[in-house]
Amino acid sequence: MHEIYKFVSGPLVWLAFIIFVGGSLYRLISMAILAKKKDGLVYEYFSLKYAFRSIYHWLIPFCSRNSQQHPWLTLVTFAFHVSLIFTPLFLLAHIILIKESWDISWWFLPEGMADFLTIVVIAGCVFLGIRRIVRPEVRYLTNTSDFIILALVGLPFITGFWSFHQWPGSTFMGILHIFSGEVLLVMIPFTRLSHMIFFPFTRGYIGSEFGAVRNVKDW
């Protein structure tokens, strides 16, 4: 067990981060080159001012008409995404590991808060999964990969919560936690989780078209 732990918490971490960062850069750069070659107008019409205007209005909850029309979903998705990104970055256990390795550290979440945000992510996954089943318009678009993606996101949080609270089998759960986190990172650039890296560009482009060319809001 110890050997496996050493492996997943050592070389695999490096590998996961290299693939995540490298893969994301690869996706962005290759898409930028493809756009230059085939969709030159994206560059022509892209306007930083209107791109930011659009991104801003879609990053603030209840700013767009659509987010006002679905208040519960808006609450859940914003809480879900914020917790998803915030928790791993400011988790004490993660910061301790980094401190031990590189002797750097930063502000961390109080324990109860971290627990709460973790539950938000897990509950968010459950909510979004159920929504995929019960809402006809979402069910129609859903395929198996959508559930796999939700599971990929939920797993590091479930296992992390489990091992932190020292529930039975916490050593195994700890290893699974690290491993599933690594899988998640690796999958981001190569699955629809890449909406994380492409959001600013799709949003920015349509924001530019609506703002700079068509003189109208896009939210």
Binding site: K38, V42, V138, L141, R192, H195, F198, F199, F201
Partner: peptide, 15 residues
């Protein structure tokens, strides 16, 4: 090119 590819791959099927 990039628009079609990005639009298809970024859609998270949220409805």
């Amino acid at each position: 090119g990039a628009r079609l590819k990005t639009y298809v791959e970024t859609c998270i099927h949220c409805g």
